[in-house]
Computed example of a mutant assay.
Amino acid sequence: MNQRDVFLKEFRGGAIGSVSSQSSSDETFQNEVLRPILKLQNDLFIASFKNYITKYKSDFYSQTAEQKLVAIENSIQKDVKYRNALKGMVIGLFTADEYSIYIKKSSSLNKRMMTMLIERLKSQVQLFENSISK
C-alpha cells in the first residue's frame, strides 16, 4: 500500500456500522469506505449545499420544513452536475484499490452514496436556516 492509501485510511478512520462475514460486498464498502468519507466531508457538503441554494434555490429559505427536505432530495437527484460534484468529493478520498472496486459496481455504490448523503443533509436541515446572512 502506498503512502497516499495509508494516509487516507488513517485520516478517514475505521468502519462505521457493522461489517461481518454475512455482509454483502456493497454493504462492506458502504460501512468501511463511504460512511467514513461522508462523515469526514460533512462540513464540505454543508458548505456546498449552502452555496447551491444561494445560487439556484433562492426561495429555499421561505419554504416549509417539509418543502426544504424535498428540495434537498430533488437537488441531488435531479441536478446531474451537482450530483457529480458531490460524487467527486467522495471519490477523491478513495484509495486506488477502493476505486477499482468502485468502478466495477459504480451504479449500486452511487445509489448508496447519494442516498446516505441526502439523508445526512436532511438530518441537518436546520443548518440551512438564515444562511444568507452568513
Rank of each mutant, 00 (worst) to 15 (best):
N31P: 06
K57N: 01
S18F: 10
R12P: 01
I46F: 04
N31S: 07
I53K: 15
Y56I: 01
V19M: 14
L8T: 04
A47L: 12
E10D: 09
A15C: 14
S58M: 13
E27Y: 06
E27R: 10
Q30Y: 10
Y61A: 10
L40Q: 14
Q22C: 15
I53Y: 15
D26N: 15
I46E: 00
I53N: 03
S25I: 06
F49C: 00
F60R: 05
N31C: 10
K57D: 02
I53S: 06
K50A: 00
T54S: 13
R35G: 02
L38E: 08
V19H: 13
I37P: 03
V33D: 04
S48Q: 08
F29G: 03
L44S: 15
S18W: 09
F49K: 03
S25M: 09
A47Q: 13
I46K: 00
N51S: 14
S24E: 13
T54P: 00
Q30V: 02
Q30K: 15
Q41V: 08
N51M: 13
E10S: 12
L44G: 07
G17H: 03
S24M: 11
V33W: 05
R35Q: 14
L34Y: 05
V33N: 01
S58G: 07
E27K: 12
I53T: 06
K55D: 12
I16F: 06
L38A: 11
K9E: 13
L40P: 04
K55T: 02
F7I: 07
K57A: 01
K57M: 05
N42A: 13
V33I: 05
G13N: 08
E32W: 02
E10R: 12
S24N: 12
T28Q: 07
D59W: 03
S18M: 11
I53W: 12
S20G: 10
T28S: 07
T54M: 11
L8D: 03
E32T: 05
D43W: 07
R35S: 11
I37K: 08
D59A: 04
G14E: 08
R35N: 13
V19S: 09
I37Q: 06
P36L: 12
Q41S: 11
A47E: 09
D59E: 08
Q41H: 06
S18Y: 11
Y52G: 04
Y52D: 05
Y52F: 15
G17V: 00
V33M: 04
Y56S: 10
F45K: 08
L38N: 12
F7L: 14
S25G: 02
N51R: 14
L44Q: 12
S20P: 01
F49T: 00
Q22G: 15
K39T: 04
S24D: 11
L34M: 05
L40K: 15
I16T: 00
R35H: 10
N42S: 14
G17C: 07
G14W: 07
V19P: 08
T54K: 14
R12I: 04
A15W: 12
I46H: 00
E32F: 03
D59Q: 03
A15R: 15
F7Y: 15
K9D: 00
E32I: 01
I53C: 08
K55G: 02
